[in-house]
Amino acid sequence: MWITFILTGLVGVAAVGYVVWPLFRRTPFAVSHEREDLADLLTRKEVALEAIRELEFDHRVGKIEDGDFERFNGILRSRAMRLIEHIEAYYGSGEGINIATGQLDEALEVEISGRRRVEEAGADEGGIGLRAE
């Protein structure tokens, strides 16, 4: 019986010590609300770009008519551009992107063509193209 209690005591001390140990450590880490907001924005941008790709695919296989495609593509692209602009303005390098000079369009095209390149590589090379990139 004593062995049981001793063994339990040892395991208990180890478990409790392991659990409370972080409470006595001094760590300066804190969750940055900026980091979280940026992660949210990047997710939204990713969703918007994915939606553009889905729309293009649906159009290609005949599920979306030309008129609807033009309209929805415009809406999705402007949403993606707004997000890219927002991300660049608040979290970018500071150089900024000027909507008037068409840099925003370029940035969006870079993002979309990046996804198309992966799609092309996916057919026969798997992720090799992605890793090389």
């Binding site: 729309l55 649906d58 599920k63 979306i64 008519e65 008129g67 609807d68 929805f72």
Partner: peptide, 9 residues
């Protein structure tokens, strides 16, 4: 498709 599929489609 997402959003709207017209009569022809």
């Amino acid at each position: 498709g997402w959003r709207r599929t017209g009569a022809k489609a």
